[in-house]
């Protein structure tokens, strides 16, 4: 017992001493340390963000910078905030983050900016005063329009549908759903959304399968399903395949070709939508590095992003391009 206390106090004494000596001798002026960049997905270990990691690493290699690609294993914004706290302590030069919530991530990003770290939001936006630029995959209006058009072609202009989403607080999905509803009113007024509250699946594929199975039973006159996250769509497709319901319910949404290949091949899903996640990771990382080098300034209107060429910048927002529609004819051309 006494020995334990002695050791504890020894540790304390060593530390008190260490602190004093460190400040007594002036810290040696550090030679210019190499630039370090942190890139954070909403969640690790899913196809979509694995593909963005490939692009992020590619941009890093091209520009000769090691990229730390890390994020939480659940789509939890508070874990993201804690991890960014660590990155601030590590004195990274730039942070590119795909926030799970635009508001909740803002305080920690503002702290980063105060300490001179360049901040980019990608995939989903953060509050505008918390980041320099937002790297957007495509405009939310174009995502919404493409999805609704695919549904109209698949079922007809009077489709009865429901929407399966990630978490109910996911900012991207919420904006897309608002835009879908707006576009539906003008372009397809006879379509109807059978459930005003979307079905939450928390970026969990098994949950998406379960939720979709329940919906197939709960809505007998259901004709279409939008599954608008890259995890929800393969989950929903699995449910449709198990129930053998692919010929009466038309499923579409957003996911990577890799996750959807088998469902497209067996006809469970005819057409679905996405942008290129490899390019998205590439652009976000490229922009973050350019910011640290002063090659990208506040208020720029165009930005030359390596192999992607000129990218348009508008109101501190960069847009990657238009969404791609995948089907049985083109899916094999994509390897993400």
């Amino acid at each position: 017992m006494r020995r334990v206390i002695t050791v504890v106090s020894l540790v304390a004494v060593v530390f008190a001493g260490r602190g004093v000596s460190e400040t007594a001798t002036p810290a040696p002026t550090t030679a210019k340390k190499p630039t370090s960049i942190g890139v954070m997905p909403k969640k690790k270990g899913i196809d979509f963000f694995n593909a963005t990691e490939i692009g992020a690493k590619e941009a890093g290699r091209e520009l000769g910078i090691t990229v730390d690609f890390d994020g939480p294993v659940t789509n939890d914004v508070t874990l993201q905030a804690q991890m960014i706290e660590t990155w601030i302590a590590k004195k990274y030069d730039a942070i590119a983050v795909a926030p799970n919530d635009p508001e909740a991530i803002a305080p920690v990003l503002q702290k980063a900016r105060k300490r001179g770290i360049k901040v980019i939001a990608w995939d989903a936006d953060a509050r505008k005063d918390a980041r320099e630029y937002f790297v957007n995959q495509c405009t939310s209006a174009s995502v919404a329009k493409t999805l609704m058009d695919v549904m109209a072609q698949g079922v007809g202009p009077e489709a009865k549908y429901i929407i399966v989403t990630g978490s109910l607080t996911a900012a991207n999905q919420n904006i897309w759903m608002d835009e879908m509803e707006q576009y539906r009113r003008t372009a397809y007024p006879k379509m109807s959304n059978l459930s005003e509250t979307p079905k939450a699946t928390e970026e969990d594929q098994e949950m998406a399968t379960q939720v979709t199975t329940d919906c197939l039973k709960a809505y007998p006159d259901l004709q279409g399903i939008f599954a608008i996250t890259s995890v929800a769509l393969p989950g929903a497709a699995e449910a449709l395949r198990k129930a053998g319901a692919a010929d009466r319910v038309f499923l579409t949404g957003l996911a990577t070709p890799k996750a959807m290949r088998e469902y497209v091949k067996d006809g469970t899903v005819k057409r679905f939508v996405l942008w290129n996640p490899v390019d998205l990771g590439y652009l976000a990382t490229y922009a973050a590095i350019a910011l640290t080098r002063g090659e990208l300034q506040t208020g720029a209107t165009t930005f030359k992003a390596g192999r992607l060429g000129e990218v348009k910048v508008q109101d501190s927002e960069m847009i990657l391009g238009d969404p791609i529609i995948f089907d049985a004819n083109n899916i094999d051309a994509f390897n993400f």
């Binding site: 659940t74 939890d76 919530d101 508001e103 909740a104 803002a106 305080p107 607080t169």
Partner: peptide, 11 residues
């Protein structure tokens, strides 16, 4: 976290 969140404190 500057927001009141229905999914706060999960876990």
């Amino acid at each position: 976290y500057a927001t009141a969140r229905p999914d706060a404190a999960r876990g």
